[in-house]
Write a protein that binds this DNA or RNA. Structure first.
Lengths: 115, 115
DNA sequence: GAGAAGCGCAACTGAATGGTTGCCAATCGT
DNA sequence: ACGATTGGCAACCATTCAGTTGCGCTTCTC
């Protein structure tokens, strides 16, 4: 049965899904890009150049923070956000794994047909 | 200005965001896993073992199909769905690129401090 | 110390999402 | 030919989501 392992797998799936969901928004993706230069940036800064309100951007940042893609640190009156690369790398590895499984499965199917 | 290139970049962003959004659901992720064995599977088959209705699964499959992660082919009375690896690999490459940019940026910042 | 900059909280709105149910059409097996 | 399998379409419902606005608090700056 491996029920424990199944539970693990399920919660991992849920966690991954929420990270994907967090990245599933144009605004949040562009925030990600803005933060990928390594420098923490304030909400006001991230809002500038956007046609959104500050509060909208704040909400998006909270979504990103809730899944760990981003971390906030308060400095004076402004709260800076920095990118947290670990979850992103996890997703990359996961997608890589799915791709590989697909490749392997196809190769096996092909071998089976030819054999 | 590079307005054309900017437009390209924006629509690419939008497309990527919708693929991420499509993967941002537990049910759809597990469908993805089920399909990663290379064999096209029917809606009924993908529904079995789930606590969802067939229609719910159908809707999820449509979401996946709309972003090209999955393709459907009608065979007899059943419609089979197969995984389409290209968009997934694209996402993987994109995440890889973001990670790398972050790494490079940090290295550059560090060098700047030390220099 | 006064004003401005930056932000958080709360309430509200419209649209999208995830899910259900009911019904009907096509296809398969016997 | 008939019943069962498979699935599409449409209507409907509850919840979530993205976004706004208004207000008040802290922290700079002059």
């Amino acid at each position: 049965m491996q029920s424990i392992s199944n539970k693990r797998r399920l919660s991992a799936l849920k966690a991954r899904a929420s990270v994907f969901a967090a990245l599933g928004d144009e605004t949040r993706l562009s925030v990600l890009v803005k933060l990928s230069n390594g420098q923490p940036q304030s909400i006001a800064r991230l809002t500038a150049g956007t046609d959104l309100s500050r509060q909208a951007v704040t909400k998006h940042l909270r979504v990103l923070a809730n899944v760990g893609v981003v971390r906030s640190l308060r400095v004076g009156r402004e709260s800076l956000f920095k990118l947290e690369p670990q979850p992103i790398e996890d997703l990359r590895d996961y997608l890589d794994q799915v791709s590989r499984q697909w490749d392997d499965a196809l190769a096996r199917l092909k071998a089976h047909v030819e054999g």
